[in-house]
Structures are given as structure tokens and as C-alpha cells.
Design a protein around this nucleic acid. Structure first.
Lengths: 237, 237
DNA sequence: TCGACTTTGTGCATCACTTCACAAAGGCAC
DNA sequence: GTGCCTTTGTGAAGTGATGCACAAAGTCGA
């Protein structure tokens, strides 16, 4: 987590929960922009983004007063302001390590390029994959990791390797000075303070769904509760 | 969101935040189990899962009293209890709609099969893709969606189609009686009450990283603040 | 210019989650 | 047994997010 310097009087203190929703608003706004909508009320934008309008207004108020009372928000202007706040008005060079199916999906993912992210490198340890052309890039060997990061000014690295390789890749990446890592490998990465790791686990959401689905079907966890409890108790003691 | 029935006196009220972390604990526990660890303290498990130990204990206390004071938690027993709570002790048939790179990545993703999820169908609208063999399954045409869901008892559907197709697929899926949907397409799906949609947006986390990275580099959003503000103000009014 | 109407921005109460800190519970050595 | 030591489970306090409700600020028609 980023720690705020206390001497900074106000401003610049956007709650994490708000930051996490800004990309959502941005996407909704882009949808409106495509349909040539000029202005939008907090109510309409909230619906489009799938949140409640009071929350949306409070979130936006953290960025500044960019709305017009009685009218709403100028779509283009708000897109610009949110993009700027998120740092998407500048160009970020991203390297993707691990070019399996997931790595390929990410390399081809429109949501990256369209939002200030430029895939500047694709790396894999498998000689079979090295040399492949994907999304206009040639896959390079993992050995090149350090030099790719240095030469192309990579500031964010995406790890899409198998779980076993992730920590080693992570260590090398950090040694190269990168402090922002997006981890798709199902492991908890150990990193020094000052390095930001965000994790996406494709199966976690599915497990949460299963939890809710189970409640719908039979109102709670397996009925074998007591019996199994006994069985297990036996094994334990 | 699932709403609790008020007449249910206690138990069965696990906070969402806790549910979201259970998969994390489960993965850490599986790691320990592989290394043949028999028992683990809340402190050690918390480190392995990347959370604080008080939080972990409180989370686990919502499931019941499964620890032993002075000793810790029995790894196997806790794996079983968490799995049961999440509904992973039963077998869930999952269908994946949209077999692009992402769909393939998901179909091959070990985290699914190993946790009670069985990929029971792969569907795509592209005739080019239909008939391909992926992860031991044959890709079927989207037209078969309803019959696949019905015949194979699919209760969770994963949408990995392009954004434009997502809502239509979603509607058909719901019409077939499915109430749990995991959406990877970058759109807000509109669904009736009672249907659970969870969303994974691969680019959101990247945008959050960019936000923090920007702060590290230059302490905040673009320095052109005032100037751009003026420019835009001109356009707006 | 004025008044009716719309919509923002925000103070405040509420709710949910987190963290602390410690009593209660059990294991283990002697 | 007995007492020490470890670790859990949980009240209680603290922190942060949410949602309500409304005053302030703006638009627009007459």
C-alpha cells in the first residue's frame, strides 16, 4: 500500500475503494462516448456502471468538482479527468512473462492497449514458444527479462507463468527495479516493502460463486455436518 | 447479493469479506498439505495467505471452532471444513462460453478442476473453433447452449465471449435456469434479481497498479493540471 | 430578471470490517 | 496431578465505507 506523507495537507487522499471503482466508471463513460452522449447525470452513469448514485457522486467528488449542478457531467471531460487520475494519460510499458493461453489472452486483450498500456515485451522460458509472433510481438526468452525491462523502460510486469516459476520471476523483476507487479499465478508472492503486487486469481471468483450457489440450492453447507465432524474428530485426536 | 432470512437465529451469517478470503486460506492450506504439514498456527497460516493473524482467526471463527488452543489448526481438517463451507465438496458442472485465448486458458486452468469444478461444456459461435479438442472436450456451437446446460446439469456458466455477445449469452443462460454467472467480458450485465453475477476484469487491476505507480513516480496525476483544466473548461462551456 | 426545476456535492448517521488485547482452553514437562 | 506455556476465540474499540437527505448551485423558459 502507498502511504500518504502527512505533510501533504489535503487533496491527494483518494480511498482505495474509490480507486478500485474508477476503472468501472471509465468503462461506462467510454460506452456513452461511443454512443455520442455529451453529458450524463450521476444517476444514469451509476446505472451504467452498476453502482448507486450517491456512491458515484462521492467517488467523483474525491477527484474534484467536475460536474455541473442541474446538468450532470460532461462525458469527455470526465473521461479525461478519471484517466488522468489513474495515470492512463501516460503510456505505460508492460511486459508479460509467461506466454501460455493466459499470457496470449492478455497480450491480445483490447482493454490493455486502449487504456494507455503498451505491451512492450513477451517472455517465456519454453524454447518451443520463443520466436512465436503474438499481437505484433515476437516472444523472447525469459533470460532476456532484465535487458527487456531496462531497454524498453518497462514499469509494470504481468506474471502469467505457472505457480512454480512465479516467485523466481518476481525476484528478478524486482531486482531490475520494477515496483508494480500484476500476478496471475496462484501463489502469494513475497516482496520487499515498496513493491506493489496485485493478484488476480481466476478460480477465487468461481469459488465465491459456488458458495452462493450452494446456499441457493440447499440453504447451506453439506448436511453431513455432524457425522463428518465426528469422523474427522477421530482422525485428529 | 444473498440476503439473510431474519428468522434464522445465528450461524449461517458469514461476512462477504470473509467468504472472499476463504479461497485464499484454502490455497495456503493445500500448499502446507503438499509439504506434509500436519498442524499450523493462525500466525503461520496468516503469513502463508498474506493476511494478518487476527483477521484469519476471526474469519475461521465464523465457520466454527475448528482449532485447538495451544496447538493450532489441523491442516487436513481445516481444508475439509473450508471446502465444505465453500461448497467445493460437491461437484459443480461448469460451462464456458467463448473459446478464445481466455476461454482456453480457463478450460486448462488447474485451479478449476482441482477444486470441485468440472468443465462440462465449451461453446463458441465461431464455426472455425467448433469441433476443436481442448482440455479433453470438443467445442460445441453456441446454438447448443440451452441443451448443454439442461443435459449436463450445468449450474455455473463462465462468459468469456467478446463484450458485444455477453449480454445475449447471459440472457439465454438465465432463461435456462442458471443463476450463477462468472463474467470475463468487459460489460456490466443486466440480470433479474436472484441471479448472481461476479465479474473479473483483467484490465481493472492493471489500472489500479498504474494509479499507484504514478504516485510513486511523480507524487500524483499529471502536472499539466491547471493548464489542461483551462483548456477543457473552454470546450465544456 | 426571476422563479421553478434539476442535479451536484457533502455533512451525518449507519453499517461493516479490521485490529487490538486478553481471558479461556488446552498441551506438555515434570 | 500441577503449573507453565502456547495459541485460540472473541468482546470491544477503532477505522473506513456506504447511503440518506438536503442545501447550494446551476439551467432554462417566460
Amino acid at each position: 500500500m502507498i502511504r500518504r506523507t502527512p505533510q501533504q495537507p489535503r487533496e491527494r487522499g483518494i480511498p482505495d475503494a474509490t480507486v478500485a471503482r474508477l476503472p468501472l466508471y471509465l468503462r461506462a463513460l467510454n460506452g456513452l462516448a461511443e454512443r455520442a452522449v455529451a453529458t450524463v447525470s450521476s444517476e444514469d452513469l451509476a446505472v451504467a456502471a452498476g453502482v448507486n448514485s450517491a456512491k458515484l457522486r462521492k467517488d467523483l467528488s474525491h477527484l474534484g468538482s467536475y460536474g455541473t449542478r442541474g446538468v450532470g457531467y460532461d462525458v469527455q471531460y470526465l473521461i479525461y479527468q478519471i484517466s488522468r487520475e489513474l495515470g492512463l494519460t501516460q503510456d505505460w510499458a508492460v511486459a508479460i512473462v509467461g506466454v501460455g493461453n493466459l499470457g496470449r489472452a492478455l497480450a491480445n486483450y483490447g482493454g490493455f492497449v486502449s487504456r494507455g498500456f503498451r505491451v512492450a515485451g513477451l517472455l517465456d522460458a519454453d524454447p518451443e514458444v520463443v520466436g512465436d509472433h503474438i499481437a505484433g510481438l515476437v516472444v523472447e526468452h525469459s533470460d532476456e527479462l532484465e535487458s527487456v525491462i531496462a531497454k524498453r523502460g518497462v514499469s509494470i510486469v504481468v506474471i502469467a507463468t505457472p505457480a512454480t516459476a512465479a516467485q523466481a520471476v518476481c525476484d528478478r523483476v524486482i531486482a531490475s527495479g520494477v515496483t508494480s507487479i500484476l500476478n496471475f499465478a496462484p501463489v502469494v508472492l513475497t516482496v520487499p516493502a515498496g513493491v506493489d503486487v496485485r493478484k488476480v486469481d481466476l478460480s477465487i471468483e468461481l469459488q465465491i460463486l459456488a458458495f452462493h450457489e450452494q446456499r441457493k440450492v440447499n440453504g447451506g453447507p453439506a448436511v453431513v455436518d455432524e457425522i463428518m465432524g465426528e469422523e474427522w474428530a477421530g482422525e485428529v485426536s
